[in-house]
Design a protein around this nucleic acid. Sequence first.
DNA 1: GCCGTTCTGTACTATATAGTACATAAACAG
DNA 2: CTGTTTATGTACTATATAGTACAGAACGGC
Lengths: 198, 198
Amino acid sequence: MGRPREFDIDAALGKAMQVFWSKGYEATSLDDLCEATGLGRSSMYAAFTDKRQIYLQVLKRYEQNAVLRVGKALAGERPLRVSLAAFLQETIDSIAHGSGRRGCLIGNSAAGLNGNDKEIAEVVRHSLDQHEQAFHNALERAQQRGEFAADEDLRALARFITASFHGLRIFGKVPRDKAALEDIAGVMLRCLERPARA
Amino acid sequence: MGRPREFDIDAALGKAMQVFWSKGYEATSLDDLCEATGLGRSSMYAAFTDKRQIYLQVLKRYEQNAVLRVGKALAGERPLRVSLAAFLQETIDSIAHGSGRRGCLIGNSAAGLNGNDKEIAEVVRHSLDQHEQAFHNALERAQQRGEFAADEDLRALARFITASFHGLRIFGKVPRDKAALEDIAGVMLRCLERPARA
DNA sequence: GCCGTTCTGTACTATATAGTACATAAACAG
DNA sequence: CTGTTTATGTACTATATAGTACAGAACGGC
């Protein structure tokens, strides 16, 4: 069946993800990707076709991770405001620590969209939707536990949380003290603690 | 005194801003800028030194516009929740209409930061701070009008509004119906209508 | 009118980078 | 062992693009 591939596709995608995440799509060269993965150009192109395809696969992979992370963080029986507070604090800590300074790859990609690539836009849209859905699932479970009124608009809350979360990550792209980020998270959480009854 | 410049620096920066705003820094070439401004490369380099300097000047110019826009939108004696609602709705309409699909240049730039250029990072940070400050000013006026308790943390609210606003703009980068964006704005406004007394 | 100075247009250089060609290596089937 | 097939490494091409050199144009000062 021919010579077997000498590297693990998924591991390579993981390495590539780190590079795209840190540098952004345009600023990442194929040489960067080769260096990070340890692959030669030939193996790269044979396995992934071209740079754009690598990016598309990386985005999908990142989306899965991100959705899983949210799901895990908000699982369990703790009140949502507690688990969400912990999740936000973890994000803030990673920013303060430095590793979170890269922001969220989904948000970074969304910000970088320029109307020239419908396929990437579609993948990014899907990722945002799935991100929102992960929050929505947690909200539904919380509602079943009686944390929200039956007529509460969970979809709106999920959208709000997703958007504010990405705003927080934008803020975190720039050196800033924890307190500023904690302010944002604090006000965000209000909206859960006293859901409106407009 | 030499030959006089044949173009208006500020008008050229305005054109350049449109390009950077639509395409992003990395994806914008000097040829793009020359075409948009109608200038030759020589005039470009003579007036602005290089691409990065153009970008820096564009960012500063955009920041001024953005801050003015917020100030104007939230001026007057209307309750802040009313003027802010109108401001958010205007943003949402521009997104739905298409012209707002580019997002906010400040947010786009923040998302594109990769730790390689401290000076651009500093300008972006300044822009975010000024954006926040514009909201803070409006909050203070509202507090003086009695819309907020004296011990309300206006700084936190301003940060929250700024972050959520940028989250909203991130959402708007991707084709999406108005309702989703209005959901976000709706929940944002709750936080003003019922400021917490944690 | 002439000179010095600054701008403008054209042509050029240098380099980075996406993608390809091709020879060789490593497996498996028979 | 041989042939087929798929992967890998090296060398290459093509192109885009940031930045420069330089000649000529357009002004003010004298």
